[in-house]
Computed example of a mutant assay.
Amino acid sequence: MSLSNLTFLDVFINFIDVLVVWYVIYKLLMVIRGTKAVQLLKGIFVIVVVRSLSSFFGLTTLGWLMEQAMTWGFLAIIIIFQPELRRALEQLGRGKIFARSTMQEEEEQEKLVDAIVKATAYMAKRRIGALISVERETGLSDYIETGIGLQSKVSSELLINLFIPNTPLHDGAVIIQNNSVAAAACYLPLSESPFISKELGTRHRAALGVSEVTDCVTIVVSEETGSISLTKNGELHRDLSQDAFKDLLTNELLLANKTQATARWNWRVKKHG
């Protein structure tokens, strides 16, 4: 079919087809974002580039090797990305890949902030060490798999009990995903920054480490001093008062999401007049 024979309906259908495909690809990338799969995708990209360059410069042997890698790559992807593929299918089955922000979600986030603030205040007064990470856009599934899965409703009582000393789950991080406690006793990557104060222990290094590779918000309660700290985007906010901590947490978890939702709404209003 020549371009001159294409009708407006054909063009519109093709446009919708391409748009849906790109949207699905975008959502799948969001599923694996922040996991080890991102690094593997970079490796695949390197193989494709090397294959193209070998063909351009006539490097026969290298081109053959890259071609074999690409030929068997599909099977390798299924094996290597098995956890991510399983997770994507599970989310698709639960209808979460195409989920949208709702008023109910905002209410749940408000309850989440209140629960964390209340639990943190309790533990800080009693010098109970705690490490809590809240997932945002970047996935924390790799770190969730290192702990004990819970999938429990967030409450201040639950968070406090998880960090009571000498209990099975007190050592490690609690990760909150989709407004629920996904897992406890999780291992987080330690920051290797040489600028971290030697006064800070493993919890603070872990909080900084995970904030350097993801966009999560992590809360630390010091066991030695009872001070409250918060990390985000590789930044450490130390010795926060209760009011300052609540304001900072609200700004990061609640107001930021409302701002994004408002921006999307304004874009739609502007687009549709």
Score class of each variant (00 low, 15 high):
Trp64Ile: 11
Trp64Gln: 14
Met66Arg: 02
Ala69Asp: 11
Ala69Tyr: 07
Met70Asp: 02
Trp72Met: 08
Trp72His: 07
Gly73Arg: 07
Leu75Lys: 03
Ile77Lys: 01
Ile79Val: 11
Ile80Ala: 15
Ile80Val: 12
Gln82Trp: 14
Pro83Asn: 06
Leu85Cys: 04
Leu85Arg: 10
Ala88His: 01
Glu90His: 14
Leu92Arg: 04
Arg94Ser: 12
Lys96Phe: 05
Lys96Pro: 02
Ile97Tyr: 00
Phe98Leu: 08
Arg100Asn: 13
Arg100Ser: 10
Ser101Arg: 01
Thr102Tyr: 01
Glu105Arg: 01
Glu105Ala: 04
Glu107Trp: 07
Gln109Ser: 09
Glu110Tyr: 09
Asp114Tyr: 08
Asp114Gly: 08
Lys118Pro: 01
Thr120Tyr: 00
Tyr122Thr: 10
Met123Gly: 05
Lys125Met: 11
Arg127Cys: 06
Arg127Phe: 07
Ile128Trp: 05
Ile128Val: 09
Leu131Thr: 04
Ile132Arg: 00
Ile132Tyr: 05
Ile132Lys: 01
Val134Pro: 01
Arg136Pro: 00
Gly139Tyr: 02
Asp142Val: 02
Tyr143Arg: 09
Gly147Thr: 06
Ile148Asn: 13
Gly149Ser: 15
Gly149His: 13
Gln151Val: 15
Ser155Val: 08
Ser156Phe: 13
Ser156Tyr: 09
Ser156His: 15
Glu157Val: 15
Leu158Asp: 10
Leu158Thr: 08
Ile160Asn: 13
Asn161Pro: 05
Leu162Pro: 10
Leu162Thr: 12
Phe163Glu: 15
Asn166Asp: 15
Thr167Gln: 03
Leu169Phe: 11
Ala173Cys: 10
Ala173Ser: 10
Ile176Val: 07
Asn178Ser: 15
